[in-house]
Amino acid sequence: MENKMETRKLSVYYKNFQALYSVDLPIQKNAVTALIGPSGCGKSTFLRALNRMNEVIEGTRVEGEVLLDGKNIYDPRVDPVALRKKVGMVFQKPNPFPMSIFDNVAYGPRIHGIKKKTDLEQIVHKSLAAAALWDEVKDRLYKSALGLSGGQQQRLVIARVLAVEPEVILMDEPASALDPISTAKLEDLIHQLKQNYTIVIVTHNMQQAARVSDYTGFFLNGELIEYNTTTAIFTAPREKRTEDYITGRFG
């Protein structure tokens, strides 16, 4: 397998607080990597470090390297704006813009310079179809996205990310605000998306990690405790702490 991304001795600080301690973690291409661990273990911080969304918060500092196709994304010559086009992100809470469904999906292509209506229509159609939402919204593309259900909104947000044709998609607990049926749909979608994309997903839900991911990293107190194939992590963890967490003994 090929590494799409890789972190080397990645440490992240918020002002004086160290949130991540020297994490080395590979992210395989066209696979789903799940990050698990109790709240505050640094998994979301790690995720945000992968497309430099940490920098949006004042007082964040990063040490070490994050490689994307072998190149360090923290190199001063790398433009975070261009990076985020390649490494998209889906947030915990569905956050569609207060505009129409069409405009939500077309937002990314538009800011990257696509103006022709027919091109935009094509991208919107393709992205919504890829996010398994097209059939549900095709008759209301020009209605507000805020009228959609939570599950639909989250798939819309994924369509919005797909529309800028990223290579990696980061998902920060994307199902935590969804009901079980919407969650199942989302998990199906993640399965399909990994054919074409590299996916990293943070989740609190152990079953979800086991269902959707190929590789799993277990974080605790800012450290990566264990990384392996998901099967290995869930059937034969090497570390006692991993086993304790997975079996629900703490966290």
Binding site: N51, M53, V56, V81, A82, L83, R84, K85, G88, M89, F91, K93, N95, P96, F97, P98, Y107, G108, I111, H112, V157, R160, V161, V164
Partner: peptide, 18 residues
Amino acid sequence: VPDDYRHASLALGATKWQ
């Protein structure tokens, strides 16, 4: 204006001004 909107836009590769 919720920060969610700002973050969503930045994460799509928009500049701050956009």
